[in-house]
């Protein structure tokens, strides 16, 4: 049990307690929505867990280091950014995925690129975004998001490696 787990569970418990004191119906509705959301996300969560387990069990750091490891250049970062932009998985599942990549020695830069493009860019939902917000708005938002995701990744990567933080 670490600090993050404790913090999240205390927040959730306190929240639901306050909700029950405020309005029973609303509190029950919150739990129902939470349960429905959980069922929605469950199959993808299980897929990600299996993929992570297979990845960690089968792939050795040596296999990967040339591809997106510490020593690979901008090409690897761009590639992983594109992968994040195309992948359509819920944002909260990008973090365990990222943690498993780090465990295999993939750089913080690559991991930051993956998370940022995964959350900000929606290739699968782009047609929907164009329909509701217009072509110009949607294309500019997704396009520039990709550029800033790469910039964010590079800065975070450098900052994480900096000895100042160790």
């Amino acid at each position: 049990m670490n600090a993050a787990v404790l913090l999240i569970n205390v927040m959730a418990l306190a929240g639901i307690l306050v909700a029950f004191m405020d309005d029973r119906e609303k509190a029950i509705l919150s739990i129902k929505i939470a349960f429905k959301g959980f069922m929605q996300i469950l199959p993808v969560t299980l897929i990600i867990l299996i993929v992570i387990a297979l990845f960690l069990g089968f792939v050795s750091p040596e296999n990967l280091s040339g591809f997106i490891g510490q020593q690979s250049g901008l090409g690897g970062i761009l590639l992983i950014g594109v992968a994040g932009a195309i992948m359509h998985i819920p944002a909260i599942l990008s973090f365990p995925l990222a943690a498993s990549l780090l465990e295999k020695g993939i750089s913080y830069t690559a991991v930051a690129a993956l998370i940022t493009t995964l959350t900000m860019i929606g290739t699968v939902t782009l047609p929907l975004e164009i329909r509701q917000l217009g072509k110009k708005f949607a294309l500019l938002r997704n396009g520039i998001s990709f550029v800033i995701a790469i910039v964010i990744a590079l800065i975070v990567g450098v900052a994480m490696e900096a000895t100042l933080w160790q």
């Binding site: 993050a4 999240i8 569970n9 959730a12 929240g15 739990i31 939470a34 959301g37």
Partner: peptide
């Protein structure tokens, strides 16, 4: 290992999300 981490955290995260969507 990863499933345990998710079990400890995911229900709470979903509950917080549920609360936000109601309030």
């Amino acid at each position: 290992q990863y499933t345990m981490e998710m079990v400890l955290i995911l229900p709470a995260v979903m509950l917080i999300m549920g609360l936000f969507s109601v309030y």
